[in-house]
Design a protein around this nucleic acid. Structure first.
Lengths: 231, 231
DNA sequence: CCAAAAGTGTTGGGACTACACCCATGA
DNA sequence: TCATGGGTGTAGTCCCAACACTTTTGG
C-alpha cells in the first residue's frame, strides 16, 4: 500500500454531454446546468461532479446525470478523459467525460444538488461555459457526428414510435445536410431493423405518416456483429 | 479550495498498448514489460505508471513509454479510461489507457525504472497479464481494427519506405483476412497519398518491389477533412 | 379541391469484386 | 529457365445519386 502514497492524487470528476433533438426547432440540443456551487457559481456547465470511492465511472456518470438533471435510463458511452494541468481552478482535477442520447419528450428535466436549474440549449447557441466544458462539448459533437454514420445510435434520440421522416430529420440535423428522401428510405429499410406498426401519425394537416419502432433483436444483432451502417 | 477535500481521491495511472507488426512472422505484436515492483512483481503488464501533478495525461503516457520501453516519437491516441472499483490491489486507482503505433525495426526496446525487461509479444500468444490489462489490450485491439478501416492510421505501423505489398500485409494481418491484390492497389493509389520513390527492394529472390513513402501533406489533408477510407 | 407532406420507380454512372494474365529478378 | 512474387487489364455486378411522379389526408 505504501507505494501509491509516493504520488500525489488528482480529484476525479465525471461530466456528461446529454444530446437531444428538438424536432420543432430542428436543432440539436444539450442539457446544461446552472452551477449552484463554487467555482463558476451561477455559470452554465455540463452536469457532472466528483466520483466516489467504490463507484465505477459509468455509475458515477449516471448518478450525476440523475442528480443534476433528473435524466435516467439513457444510452451512455464514455467519450474522452480531460486532464490538462490547469483545467480546474480548484487544482489538479481530471475529468472523465461521457455523452448520452435521449428523446427529450420522454425525460423531464429536474435540477437538484449542485445545480440551480437544468435546461436544453441548441448546440449552436451556447452560453459561455465553465471549466473546459466548451472543448468537451465540441469533442462530443464530433464523436456523435462521426459515430452516427457508421453505427445505429441515432435511434436512441427518437421516441419509442417514430416516422421515417423523423428519423431522416434526425440525420439531417445532426449531420447538417439534407438527404435524399427516396434514397434514405431505401437505405433504412435495407437494414431491416424497423418494425412496422399499425399506427399512424395524428394531428397533422396532411397525409399521416406510418409509425415504426425498431426491432430490438435485429438491432442488437447489428450492433454486435460489426455492422456497416452508412448514410 | 476546501470543496475538493470533501472527496476521496483516486490514484491516477496511464497505460500504453504499443502495437507493432512483425512482417517475418506475419503477426501483430504488442510491447509488454516485466514488472520490477509490487504489486504483480515479475508479471507481464502493459507499460505504464502514475501520472504526476502538473503533467498532461498524454505527456504522462509518453514519459512512461519512454521510461519503460525506450520508445518515443510515436503515434499516440487516448483509448479509454478504466475505473472499476477493484481493478488495482493497491486500492482506488483509475487508469487512462493510450495506444501507440510504431514500426518495430525503427525502435529499439530498452527497459528501465519499474520494468525489468520489455519485449514484443504476438497478440494471440500473450502471457497472463497483471491488473485488468488483458481487458485493456482487447479494447485497444478492437479500436485498432475498427479505426484501420476508416482512417489512414495504418501507415504509422510501417517503416519510412515501404512496398505496397507490405501495406497490404499490414491490413491482412490486422484485419485477419486476405485481400485481393489488384483491388487493394487500386484502392490505395486512388487515395493519392503515396509518393513513389526511385528505389526498389533489395535482397529478395524475385522481382524487387518499388518503394513508397507517403505524402505527408496530402495525408494530413485527408486526416483533417473527414476522409472516407475503406478497404 | 387544394396544399402539404407521405411515399414509390427508374436510370445512369461509379466503385468494388473476381478473375487471369504478364513482368522482372535471383538462383 | 524456372520459381517467386511484383504488377496490370477488364467484364460483370451491385450500390448509390439524382430525378419526377403518385397517394393520402385535413382544412
Amino acid at each position: 500500500m505504501s507505494f501509491t502514497y509516493e504520488f500525489e492524487r488528482p480529484g476525479l470528476t465525471v461530466d456528461g454531454v446529454i444530446f437531444g433533438l428538438d424536432f420543432e426547432e430542428e436543432t440539436l440540443k444539450v442539457v446544461l446546468v446552472e452551477r449552484d456551487v463554487e467555482p463558476f457559481e451561477g455559470m452554465w456547465a455540463l452536469p457532472g461532479g466528483f466520483v466516489r470511492n467504490g463507484e465505477s465511472l459509468e455509475d458515477a456518470a449516471l448518478r450525476e446525470l440523475r442528480e443534476e438533471t433528473g435524466i435516467k435510463d439513457v444510452f451512455l458511452e464514455q467519450l474522452y478523459t480531460f486532464g490538462k494541468p490547469n483545467r480546474d481552478p480548484r487544482g489538479w482535477v481530471v475529468s472523465v467525460a461521457y455523452y448520452a442520447l435521449v428523446a427529450p419528450d420522454q425525460h423531464h428535466l429536474l435540477a437538484t444538488t449542485d445545480a440551480r436549474r437544468a435546461e436544453w440549449f441548441p448546440v449552436n447557441k451556447l452560453p459561455k461555459l465553465a471549466f473546459d466544458h466548451a472543448e468537451v462539448l465540441q469533442t462530443a459533437l464530433q464523436r456523435l457526428r462521426g459515430k452516427l454514420t457508421y453505427a445505429p445510435i441515432g435511434f436512441e434520440l427518437l421516441p419509442d414510435k417514430f416516422s421515417i421522416r423523423q428519423l431522416q430529420t434526425l440525420y439531417e440535423i445532426v449531420l447538417g445536410q439534407k438527404l435524399d428522401n427516396r434514397n434514405f428510405r431505401k437505405k433504412i429499410f435495407s437494414l431491416d431493423v424497423l418494425k412496422e406498426l399499425n399506427e399512424i401519425q395524428t394531428g397533422v394537416a396532411h397525409r399521416a405518416a406510418r409509425l415504426y419502432k425498431f426491432d430490438e433483436r435485429k438491432y442488437k444483432q447489428l450492433t454486435r456483429q460489426g455492422l456497416t451502417f452508412e448514410i
